[in-house]
Deep mutational scan, measured.
Amino acid sequence: NKFNKELGWATWEIFNLPNLNGVQVKAFIDSLRDDPSQSANLLAEAKKLNDAQA
């Protein structure tokens, strides 16, 4: 379904953000699993944090 596809894509993108540490990645992935409907918002937050830590 739509959420599974978005969840998978967001998970892959978060895993590939180079400036996040393992704890941050795990926290974002756990949040995605808790509420897949928020995948776009969580991915945006992860990208912002990644950019801030560059």
Rank of each mutant, 00 (worst) to 15 (best):
L20C: 02
K47H: 08
R33W: 15
N50C: 04
I14Y: 03
V25D: 00
K47R: 14
P18T: 11
W12G: 04
L20M: 01
E13W: 15
L7W: 12
T11A: 15
L20W: 01
E6C: 15
L43E: 01
A44G: 04
L32Y: 03
S37D: 06
A27T: 09
V23N: 12
N16C: 13
P36F: 05
D34M: 14
F28T: 00
V23E: 13
E45H: 08
Q24A: 02
K26D: 03
W9Q: 14
N19M: 05
L42R: 03
K48N: 06
K47L: 07
P36S: 03
S37F: 05
L43N: 02
D34A: 15
S39P: 02
D51E: 13
Q38T: 04
N1D: 13
E13S: 06
D51R: 13
E13C: 15
F3C: 15
G22F: 14
R33G: 04
E45N: 04
S39C: 14
G8E: 15
A44P: 01
A54H: 08
K48R: 13
P36A: 03
D30M: 12
N4A: 09
L49E: 01
L7K: 03
P18H: 07
G22C: 15
N1M: 05
P36E: 02
I14A: 02
K48H: 06
A52W: 08
S37M: 06
P18R: 07
N1F: 04
V23D: 12
K2A: 13
E13A: 12
A46Q: 01
A46F: 04
K5Q: 14
N41F: 14
S37R: 07
I29G: 01
N19C: 12
A54D: 06
K47E: 03
N16E: 03
F3T: 10
S31C: 13
A27H: 13
N16I: 09
L20A: 00
Q38K: 09
N1G: 12
L17I: 01
V23M: 12
N19R: 02
K2E: 13
G22R: 13
A44S: 09
N50I: 02
L42M: 05
A10K: 04
Q53G: 04
N4T: 10
S39K: 06
N50V: 01
N50P: 00
S31T: 05
A46S: 02
P36I: 06
A44Q: 08
E6H: 08
K2V: 11
L20Q: 00
D51P: 01
L43H: 01
K2I: 14
A52H: 08
A27D: 05
I14D: 02
Q24Y: 02
L20E: 00
Q53H: 04
I29T: 03
W9L: 11
S37G: 08
K48E: 07
N21S: 14
A10E: 05
D30A: 13
F28N: 00
N21A: 06
E6K: 07
L42I: 15
N21K: 07
Q38W: 03
K26G: 04
L43P: 00
I14H: 01
F15E: 09
W9I: 10
D30E: 11
A44F: 10
N1E: 11
K2F: 12
E13P: 02
A46I: 02
E6S: 10
A27N: 10
D30T: 13
D35V: 04
G8T: 13
K26E: 05
S39W: 15
I29K: 02
W12A: 08
P36Y: 04
T11V: 15
I14M: 04
S39R: 07
D34P: 01
A54S: 09
F28I: 04
L17P: 00
P36K: 02
K47Q: 09
D35L: 06
A27V: 07
L42E: 00
W12C: 10
F3Q: 08
N4P: 11
A54T: 08
K48Y: 05
Q24P: 00
A27K: 13
A54I: 06
N16W: 06
T11P: 04
K2P: 12
A27P: 00
A40R: 12
L49F: 02
G8M: 15
S31Y: 09
N50E: 01
Q53P: 02
K47S: 03
Q38N: 14
N4Y: 11
L42H: 03
K26Q: 10
A27W: 15
S37A: 09
L42G: 01
A52R: 14
N1W: 02
T11Y: 13
T11Q: 11
N50L: 01
S39V: 15
A40W: 12
L32V: 04
L43G: 01
K26T: 07
A44L: 10
E6N: 10
A52E: 11
K47N: 04
S39F: 12
D30W: 05
L32I: 11
P36T: 03
V23A: 15
A54W: 08
L32F: 04
S31D: 03
V25N: 00
A40M: 13
K2G: 13
A10P: 04
Q38V: 04
A10L: 06
N4S: 09
Q38A: 07
Q24L: 03
I14C: 05
F15S: 09
D51W: 10
N50H: 02
R33N: 12
D34K: 14
K2M: 12
K2W: 15
D30S: 11
S37N: 11
L17T: 01
N4W: 15
S39T: 13
L42S: 02
L20Y: 00
N41W: 14
G22W: 15
E45Q: 12
Q38Y: 04
A52N: 07
N19I: 01
Q53S: 04
L49Q: 04
L7G: 03
I29F: 05
D35S: 06
D30N: 11
I29Y: 05
V23L: 12
K2Y: 12
A27F: 15
K47M: 09
N1T: 07
S37Y: 06
